[in-house]
Design a binder for these strands. Structure first.
Length: 248
DNA sequence: AAATGTCCCAACCGCAATTCA
DNA sequence: ATGAATTGCGGTTGGGACATT
């Protein structure tokens, strides 16, 4: 069977995503959902392949995603699950709400693997000088978490967090709200809209950093670009009828 | 201060699995 | 039932940031 390449290599951007691209993708997926990643970039105005868009959304832009600052409990969970599941990162990620498989995989290779190996070596030395007991791996496997999906709450697209870390809502915020947040500075304004906006975002513990949001703010065509979504989404998205608003 | 090495993360790639027509 | 299209997964890599010489 001959596969058509999922990514048409010609004329498509690769590499690091720009704030502008992030915004386009976020705005489009938030408004129209993502039923067909392959066609999405075309209608979102992105020169990326669908695969790249999906990865970016799943790992960095999707609501509720957490970045960095792993807690001790999270790291313990990763180590235990890895001991029992191996490199099944997506399964491991499903037990850590807000964490992507890619990030967990990176964190494992960059930090946890070394620590785990170091601990194993240390324990082996202790084991050699003490009466017989279980190896570190065996111990971990014995007490490893049962993977039945019931003991953890998986991250859900419905648990949207606002960029400033406000409590999750059962509903996605409207794009009008987003626009209001972007275009209306706080009452106690310093007079510099960009800085005020960044100040708000700096409280954010969530995915898109204050730095990124500041950059996003500075993209002057925001309103222009968003206008079609807010007023007549049907005219912008040919799939609108099929997809429905906020479909996840 | 400059050169070199190392670490870490974002993103790409290929393949397998799943869904669709 | 079959083949094509699409999605999801895990391994790998490029390059920027930071540390060391």
């Amino acid at each position: 069977m001959v596969r058509t390449p999922y990514c048409d290599k010609s004329g498509l951007r690769k590499g690091t995503w720009t704030p502008e691209e992030d915004w386009k993708l976020t705005a489009y997926v938030t408004t129209h959902g993502h039923k067909n990643w392959r066609k999405l970039p075309k209608f979102a105005g992105l020169a990326r392949c669908g695969k790249s868009c999906r990865l970016r959304w799943m790992n960095y832009l999707r609501p509720g995603i957490k970045r960095g600052n792993y807690t001790y409990e999270e790291e313990e969970t990763i180590i235990k699950l890895h001991a029992s599941l191996g490199n099944r990162w997506s399964v491991i990620a499903s037990h850590l709400p807000g964490r992507s498989d890619n990030e967990i995989k990176n964190h494992w290779h960059a930090h946890l693997k070394k620590r785990f190996q170091h601990n194993s070596e240390t324990d082996e030395k202790v084991e050699a000088s003490t009466p017989k007991h279980h190896s570190p791996v065996e111990s971990i496997q014995e007490e490893s978490v049962e993977v039945d999906g019931s003991c953890f709450q998986s991250s859900s697209p419905d648990t949207f967090q606002t960029p400033n870390g406000a409590s999750p809502s059962s509903q996605l915020p409207s794009l009008n709200d987003d626009l209001r947040m972007i275009t209306e500075p706080a009452p106690a304004s310093s007079g510099n809209l960009v800085d005020d906006f960044a100040d708000v975002m700096e409280e954010n513990t969530d995915p898109i950093s204050a730095y990124s949001w500041k950059e996003l703010y500075e993209i002057s065509y925001f309103s222009e670009f968003l206008a079609p979504f807010v007023t007549e989404p049907e005219s912008f998205c040919p799939f609108y009828d099929d997809w429905g608003m906020f479909e996840q």
